[in-house]
Design a binder for these strands. Structure first.
Lengths: 209, 209
DNA sequence: TCTTGTGGTATACAAATGTATACCTGCGGA
DNA sequence: TCCGCAGGTATACATTTGTATACCACAAGA
């Protein structure tokens, strides 16, 4: 009884897909046309889906169907220092929300990183770093900066009148910039980083060609 | 002329907020009530916003307004090996889409990491790692595993009949598990990682209380 | 001064959309 | 056999919602 019939799944899938593609929900008649039934049948299907709380609606309003399939959300579990119960049974601490989890705001930008110069700060080749324009840059902030015609990600520091862009990799040398002489600009301060292990693997395997 | 008036911004903000909170767009009259004007004024505002291509609509359909404010999307720029023009003027390579950029799929889960044992793999204290249940775990995959009652993130390896969970930090020792004796389970393979520098800072500054 | 664009009210209207009702079919269990 | 339930058609209806039109006020340019 907990299961879902083929028809119900058909309708649910259509609603989900339509919403994803259009940014808004389908009307009852659109659902009917899509799965090949009349509006009356759609009404009943939706009523059933709502009872099973697979969708949410609001009486009277149009195009307000929302699929509440929890499986499509990505849960994030809390970590514990010592022992920890099996994750599978645990309640998630939160659900993944990109902007919140990454601490992003409107106006932030991202850039793909090339090279391993910041590897010890968790920024690897192929990572995406997100940065934000800020008023004041402080020593030890990680910044995205332009030096002459190149853009680089480094740790920021001052040394007298000069600026030092320190890598986080013993194999690399710091870049020293004299603002009076060199063309230099801090584009933004790094807010967060993403690393995708799947993609990284793809990168490296290119070589074997 | 490129700018946006206060009223227009008011309407735009409301639409964006309403949509974010409800999952569907407001009707014209709802917008009017919210910003305190009649439907006629709303029509004009929306027409202007559409002309400025700040919103998208579809004639006749209800609740299909979508804010296309480019500023609310987060652009990601491509990296170049050598010189690179000023990012600000550059065309973005893509816009941030969490699932795509992180390589996530439905069913994936995330967990907050405690400790620095995987620091050299870019997984720091406070990071969120996303993982996926997989059929076959290979040597050198980074996995989320349960050992007895604790959950840990480590690099997976086999040594004869035993399993070695290797940290990526010279200060930590590998964990050796004998599946015949110990309670052990690979929960998933790590797909991607997020690190939020803002939050990390927050963590550490707690101490100064 | 005249024109244009923004922003506003009021009102009528048509189309889109959700809702309700009556009636039919087939299936599985009590 | 009877009943409940999923699933279906057909149709009428009320409400929501977008659209159109007329008219007003004000400020900035040409």
């Amino acid at each position: 009884m907990k299961e879902i019939t083929d028809r119900q799944k058909e309708a649910l899938d259509f609603i989900e897909e339509f919403t994803r593609e259009n940014g808004y929900a389908p009307s009852f008649r659109e659902i009917g046309t899509a799965i090949g039934v009349t509006i009356g049948a759609v009404q009943k299907l939706l009523r059933i889906l709502e009872r099973k709380s697979l969708i949410r609606r609001e009486a009277g309003r149009s195009r307000v169907l929302r699929v509440t399939r929890k499986e499509s959300r990505i849960p994030i579990y809390a970590a514990a220092r010592g022992g920890m119960p099996r994750i599978v049974d645990e309640d998630p601490k939160e659900y993944f929300d990109a902007r919140a989890t990454l601490g992003l705001r409107t106006g932030d930008r991202g850039i793909y990183v090339v090279g391993d110069s910041m590897i010890n700060a968790g920024i690897a080749d192929g990572s995406v770093v997100f940065f934000r324009r800020v008023q004041d840059v402080r020593d030890n902030d990680i910044v995205v900066a332009r030096v002459e015609d190149g853009v680089t990600v480094k740790r920021y520091g001052r040394q007298g009148k000069k600026i030092v862009l320190k890598p986080e990799n013993p194999l690399h040398e710091p870049i020293v910039v004299d603002p009076a002489v060199d063309s230099f600009e801090v584009i933004g301060k790094v807010v967060s980083v993403i690393k995708n292990y799947g993609k990284e693997a793809g990168h490296k395997e290119k070589k074997q060609k």
